[in-house]
């Protein structure tokens, strides 16, 4: 079972990154819940979504402790890192986030998502760079197969873009396991 928090500024695509993860997980036959941040915190602050991915029925969509935090901005890391379990994973957008002084006992994967997306001429794909690093870091799904799921997701929305796959795979490459 994996509990994931995906967080950043509104506009960084954190809800979409979570949606892509949810949809690909579903197509792998997993049970999944996707809960958006909701209420006043959406207005001007951090946006986030929280997912559970599991092989069997998901009882409670809410959780207090996460196995994986995808932090796209500093505020997300600072406010949510305390919810990550011991030996959990934090994927940090090193273009914008400073992880010095972070608590011990978590595995930190740094990926310069905003810079990589700009370099690949797909600036809105920073969320997918982060997702690539996260998927590779937790090893839940093979990266190439997941990239196919990304292509299918955006094609299904009528926004097919090969640069999305490129962003995801670059992110995955920055976070090889071990």
């Amino acid at each position: 079972m994996v509990r994931v928090i995906c967080a950043g500024f509104g506009g960084q695509g954190v809800l979409t990154a979570g949606l892509v993860l949810a949809e690909v997980a579903m197509n792998y036959g997993k049970k999944v819940t996707w809960v958006p941040s909701y209420g006043s915190e959406m207005r001007g602050g951090t946006a986030s979504c929280r997912l559970r991915i599991r092989d069997t029925e998901i009882l409670n969509p809410f959780f207090e402790e996460a196995d994986l935090l995808i932090a796209m901005n500093q505020n997300s890391l600072d406010t949510l890192q305390g919810q990550v379990v011991q030996d959990g994973v934090i994927v940090s957008n090193s273009t914008m986030v400073n992880v010095s002084g972070l608590r011990s006992g978590v595995r930190v994967v740094e990926t310069p998502a905003t810079a990589v997306a700009a370099e690949l001429k797909n600036p809105r794909g920073a969320n997918l760079v982060m997702l690539g690093a996260a998927v590779a870091a937790i090893g839940l799904f093979p990266a190439e197969a997941f990239a196919d799921g990304i292509d299918a997701y955006f094609a299904g929305k009528g926004h097919g873009n090969p640069l999305n796959r490129a962003c995801f795979l670059r992110g995955a490459a920055t976070a090889g396991r071990g």
Binding site: A22, M26, K31, T33, W34, Y38, P61
Partner: peptide
């Protein structure tokens, strides 16, 4: 919460 969350 049920209205805003997503599930398969």
């Amino acid at each position: 919460s049920i209205a805003q969350m997503m599930e398969p």
